[in-house]
Amino acid sequence: MTKVMNILLVGVGGQGTVLASKVLGQVALSLGQEVKVAEIHGMSQRGGSVVTQVRYGEKVYAPTIPLGKADVILAFEKMEALRWLPYLKKGGRVIVNDQELDPMPVIVGSVSYPEKVIEQLAVHGQVTVVPALQLAEEAGNAKATNVVLLGVLAQSLGIEPEIWRQVLADSVPPKTLAVNKKAFELGLNYKAEDVSSVS
């Protein structure tokens, strides 16, 4: 079978993963290949663990990415990257926002937030840590964290930045466009050392 590109977007409901997957889906469409996107709406959007999935290639069947087959995990929150790590293929890339959002079991004190998340991720994949929240604030709005992360993702997918910019302009509300444009460029130009890679 020809190669299918699999990108998993994970985060916390309300962080903008659905918009990010819509943008990514439209960008992938520009390659002239088959594209499938799987989203989850409803209850999990209220601060729960959320995952959206984007797949593109000559022929794509399932809208969901099978375990161990994701080329990239784009994580909007650190612990969520760890939760969904079994979906990453060996040596795949994890782009992770360096932000911790405590889930309710941690807030009520029944469990602790996991430690050494980045190190655990690096055992299985190539990890790029992004201070996406700070970059979004630099762009003018913390809510643009999702677009910063899309910018970082754009570095590695080999799709013309101009296509991303066009899709972004068509996808976000006009009055947020300036901030989102800036957020995208900050992500696109962000230089991070890979934390480590699989030996």
Partner: peptide, 27 residues
């Protein structure tokens, strides 16, 4: 899922990481 069907009937190959202990994140 494809992996569930593949594991029962096919020669599904995967090298998934073992799931780490991660606290639940209920809505």
């Amino acid at each position: 899922s494809p992996e569930l069907i593949g594991a029962k009937l096919g020669d599904w190959q995967q090298e998934a990481a073992v799931a780490a202990e991660v606290p639940n994140r209920p809505p």
